[in-house]
Design a protein around this nucleic acid. Structure first.
Lengths: 211, 211
DNA sequence: CAAATTTTTGACCGATTGGACAAACGTTAG
DNA sequence: CTAACGTTTGTCCAATCGGTCAAAAATTTG
């Protein structure tokens, strides 16, 4: 029985070329958005002709969809790792650090996601209200537990998570602005370490349990 | 002498129709980005034909440019108001509050700006490295003064400003995600007050001067 | 009123878009 | 070698894109 959801068999060439296309599409989609990107652009970036690209992905949307599916898993991995077992302050610090590292190492993925959300998330809305909400609610409960135990200051766990997302992804999504404002000296490679130091201080001081 | 920069004389109809177009363009550009928006879409949203729209703005870029110029002034107003005179903690609190109010009351303007930055700020890069950087540097100096005076904790003023931008604009730019995660109950109109409470706590506790 | 000016429209243009298709080309298994 | 299969390409298409233009309609001015 073919359910239509199982992964189709693929030759070695198909696997390689599909990866090539997805890599090129990530570059193009993340800087121009879905509607602002053309198949020609992606094909050229992947070093092949447009009909050839369409042999591997029949529609432009298929590329984007495949990209988004892969993205979400790796994107939410840091939050999944947030664990009830360790010390709350240590857990939060390493969550912030991991998210900031992702903004540094995978800025295109961050911008691709930001583009999708900015435009109303037309293609991933169900995922947000489903899988994502479930995960966040789950982690919010963990954080609430820490608050009840007096390990961190009482505050809104959901908005805490939002603020960590916002501040860390800012360094990927608004990178040009950050670099423009910091200037050539402070806007160099060291900006992520500066940001890490600042965010650590902000969140850890801001969340210290009160006497 | 015509410098080319003075405002042309306009009839009453021209003023009204241009406003109508800019309002419609704000709606369209902010949700689809520049390249993702079409003149037809804007014309239809403004209730006029495409050639009629092009009578008031000769090129698509002219609409976007006018929109961005107007935007930047109002968008930076809260930061301009950040003043050396008042109490540092009070000043910062009201700056955060004003920025959050702008995210609530002008989400389309925020998304328009975010779209532009996300795509590498091709049309406003000079403004970022010029006017914006100057303003931020100036306010960073003010904040540094507060730190030297022991009024607030020592930290990086530039990244402090970035974090305020990121956290407040998040509620406009990522609104769909915020509402999806919070769900129908907590994601209603009250979410901005919850956010205000959280951000106030985060920043004011995180910036308390240390003994 | 009538003339001058401004506003609106329909028809049209070349360029670009996403995508189809058959033919040509490569590769591999028997 | 050859037949089958997988890959690549050139050509083509209808739809849409940003934008032009002349003429009609509406408005303002004298």
């Amino acid at each position: 029985m073919n359910t239509g959801t199982e992964a189709p068999r693929r030759t070695r060439i198909q696997q390689e070329k599909r990866e090539l296309i997805l890599e090129a599409a990530l570059e193009v989609f993340s800087t121009h958005g879905f509607r602002g990107s053309t198949i020609d652009q992606i094909a050229e970036a992947a070093g092949m002709s447009k009909p050839n690209l369409l042999y591997y992905f029949r529609r432009k949307e298929d590329i984007h969809e495949t990209l988004m599916q892969r993205l979400l898993d790796t994107w939410l991995a840091p939050l999944r790792e947030l664990d009830d077992i360790g010390d709350p302050m240590t857990e939060l610090r390493s969550y912030i650090r991991r998210k900031l590292e992702m903004a540094r190492d995978f800025p295109r993925e961050s911008r691709l996601f930001a583009n999708e959300i900015l435009q109303g998330a037309p293609r991933i809305m169900p995922l947000l209200a489903g899988e994502l909400k479930t995960l966040v609610d789950e982690k919010a409960a963990v954080i609430k537990g820490w608050m009840r135990a007096g390990k961190i200051a009482r505050t809104d766990p959901w908005h805490l998570i939002f603020s960590i997302w916002a501040t860390t992804q800012h360094y990927a999504d608004f990178d040009v602005q950050v670099r423009a404002v910091l200037g050539p000296n402070r806007g160099g490679d060291g900006r992520f370490e500066d940001a890490a130091r600042f965010l650590e201080q902000l969140f850890l001081e801001g969340l210290k349990p009160k006497g």
